[in-house]
């Protein structure tokens, strides 16, 4: 990385655009660049190196030990479960969040005062930290002291976070509660951009609201669906705060997703090598998934993701 900087700073090539003297602005990018290389790019390369090393995270000795850490990480009997849990969280949270976000986005897109008011309130979960949300639900759903016990309603009084299947379901619910507001905002913006004339034409043709939704709204949202799905799917790989505070991976290993497994291996079991290997798996999976989804969506979604 360091080889990049020196030669080009001197190169004051005339710019193709407005004739700004590019040489005199190059240095302005340096603070951000150096900062990001140091704490972003170097760690990214570092995690790859560390996955081929052995380090306990405490003593300063880091030894390169080839494939030992990878072997340890991949042969760990809890890895298949962690992958399965990660996949389950990814798939289920996508399945729950996407339809609700689209419907809410469509609902919020209509500009009436009461919908505007509701949108203001929908937004609140986005302001809370994952830790705050996890603690709220943990207390709310506590089998002895939570709302179920207090209301005395049998159906509500389950050990929500204490049984494997219920815990996954609860986690998905909490994730959806936290992130649907964000995705519905993306959909709201996209729905507002659909030309009104399309609906008028459909109305003249006698299409009902439901047909308009499936015939116009959904197809027009195609790229937004891909953008939002990419964010959901890739984001779900890195759920840590929420799971850690809510269940710490439990009960047993029912909610121990890869990110949690990584933390436990590295910072609790002092196996930084295998933990780095899991981190590399996470990065590669995220990268692969976003490339795959981009391929699915054709080329146009790029501009959607990157247009501010």
């Amino acid at each position: 990385m360091t080889t990049l900087a020196p030669p080009v700073v001197r190169g004051q090539e005339p710019t193709r655009s407005s004739g700004g003297r590019s040489g005199s602005v190059v240095w302005m990018a340096l603070p951000a660049f150096v900062m990001f290389v140091f704490f972003g790019i170097v760690p990214l390369l570092g995690v790859i190196v560390l996955s081929f090393a052995t380090w306990n995270g405490i003593t300063p000795t880091i030894e390169l030990t080839g494939l030992t850490s990878w072997r340890a990480a991949l042969s760990n009997p809890s890895l298949p479960n962690a992958i399965w849990v990660t996949f389950l969280i990814m798939a289920l949270s996508w399945l729950v969040q996407t339809p609700i976000s689209i419907l809410l986005g469509v609902f919020m897109a209509t500009r009436t005062r009461y919908r505007g008011f509701l949108s203001v309130l929908y937004f609140i979960p986005l302001l809370l930290s994952s830790a705050a949300i996890a603690i709220t639900y943990k207390s709310l759903l506590d089998p002895s002291f939570g709302i179920g016990a207090g209301l005395g309603v049998e159906a509500l009084n389950q050990n929500w976070l204490g049984e494997a299947n219920l815990a996954i379901g609860t986690l998905i619910f909490v994730v959806s509660w936290q992130f649907i507001p964000f995705h519905s905002l993306i959909y709201q913006g996209a729905v507002r951009q659909i030309p009104h004339s399309m609906y008028e034409a459909a109305q003249i043709d006698g299409a009902g609201r439901v047909r308009q939704f499936f015939g116009i709204t959904l197809p027009q949202l195609k790229y937004t669906i891909i953008t939002s799905s990419t964010l959901m799917v890739v984001g779900s790989l890195t759920f840590f705060d929420l799971i850690w505070v809510l269940t710490a991976g439990g009960p047993g290993d029912a909610t121990r997703a890869l990110a949690v497994q990584m933390y436990q291996q590295g910072f609790q079991a002092s196996l930084m090598g295998p933990a780095s290997a899991i981190a590399v798996i996470l990065v590669l999976t995220g990268l692969g998934l976003s490339l795959l989804l981009r391929r699915l969506g054709g080329r146009a979604d790029e501009s959607q993701l990157e247009g501010a």
Binding site: F39, G40, P43, G46, G57, M272, A279, V283
Partner: peptide, 19 residues
Amino acid sequence: FLMGLAIPLQAVVIPVYLI
């Protein structure tokens, strides 16, 4: 920087900790 958008913090915490 654009590539950096895709780097999740969670995945690089171990080297960050080391640094």
